[in-house]
Write a protein that binds this DNA or RNA. Sequence first.
DNA 1: TCAAAAGTGTTCTGTGTACACCCATGG
DNA 2: CCATGGGTGTACACAGAACACTTTTGA
Lengths: 240, 240
Amino acid sequence: MDEWLKDSTEVEASWVTVDLAIFTVRGDQLMVLLIERGLEPFRGRPALPGGYVQKDETLREGALRELWEEAGIDGSRLHLEQLGAYGDPRRDPRGRVVTIAYLALGPDLPVPVGGTDAERAYWAPVSELAEGAGELAFDHLIILTDALEEIRRKLEYTAVATVFCGESFTLSELRTVYEVIWGQHLDPSNFRRKVLNTAGFVKPTGEQRLPPTGRPAALYSRGSAWLLSPPLLRGASHPA
Amino acid sequence: MDEWLKDSTEVEASWVTVDLAIFTVRGDQLMVLLIERGLEPFRGRPALPGGYVQKDETLREGALRELWEEAGIDGSRLHLEQLGAYGDPRRDPRGRVVTIAYLALGPDLPVPVGGTDAERAYWAPVSELAEGAGELAFDHLIILTDALEEIRRKLEYTAVATVFCGESFTLSELRTVYEVIWGQHLDPSNFRRKVLNTAGFVKPTGEQRLPPTGRPAALYSRGSAWLLSPPLLRGASHPA
DNA sequence: TCAAAAGTGTTCTGTGTACACCCATGG
DNA sequence: CCATGGGTGTACACAGAACACTTTTGA
């Protein structure tokens, strides 16, 4: 393998990990799954779940495996997408560790199941991360910030919002996803028209659901389109 | 470091490389820089330039170094952005090599300078890649396809098109960048209005330039804005 | 009958689109 | 003078924003 190496003293193999930024919408909060580290470095500090990539798996397979091992989540029902690679040589005090960050999005998961490790796993509201709760380990705050920005942008031009909802959902639920993640109020009637006029975004199931109070709402399920055209742009307007 | 390892027989360190998808617009063609591999595997086949990440550099620094070593290009004048990580365990026949792909965009570079290695470096028109010219090494065709899609999308909502132009440029030149990359004709007068009405996209220099024939064109330079709002959407219309 | 949420309709305004037209230069 | 590309103006259709209004349920 060293036939490629130009100056073998300058190159060495690296540890490669995957880290997961797992988000869900619960009520009117965007939540991210964190673990409390049980080992040094950063012992006791919150961190994104993750771990080493194994010999014979793809990066995506590694992410799915960690999703299961660290959070007890079956990835087949969620949206998993690569966010990017983070490889600053000083990001891990123990040496060079390149991590591939993945974004995982899903409907309100039943329990923030503890991982197979000793670490505690829990859902944290994204809005409360800036202040206290202890600083995130490694460069995980950077990864999380990038993840958030990615979600906000993806809501505009993909149907990704639907993965935060269940199998079927009302337009109000879908709108709440947008409102929570963008942090701004959207006009219900305009949102409705926009979504229904975007070909393939959602399709009616024919069923209805009764809200706590008020008229029953029609249920929809995910449509066939992933890319939205025209996109659902968030104007700079709309104070929350 | 193995304090993290859950099952050390399943984990091993990986080689980490950076690969570069370097694009420029020349005339009415989008060009990508390829090298002809001088070594096995895939000897003699075209490939993206790239190489191993060294011990003490960030991924971005590695990309900049390879840009210089393999293509003789000074990265300070171009746009460099991470595309993603590619880590299928079978992507390199010699074993596990995770590569971080970078996108590099710049104005028509003077010469497709050969690298410091024996390999030949040359600009290839993107339009001719699908057909012959030999298949690309490794998974580089996948990387290139992802890169293209990324550029096309980024043209819509960022001012990235300006990095394909020189220090100052006419609106026709800027429009040509869009037309070449999107592969569709744009109305000159509407393009003009759109660009000038987007705050911070370009700013007039006051200079003019004489085209081969016709009225002199005003020159512009890059503005302060990177994100365009509103974005410059390509409708599904406009046959080239 | 009231509150609350779903759903419809309407008006206003801005923006993309298509296209006609004028301007400045070299040949 | 003409050809060529730069640059301006305009009319139309459509889409988003704001908001009034109707419908359907439970309490």
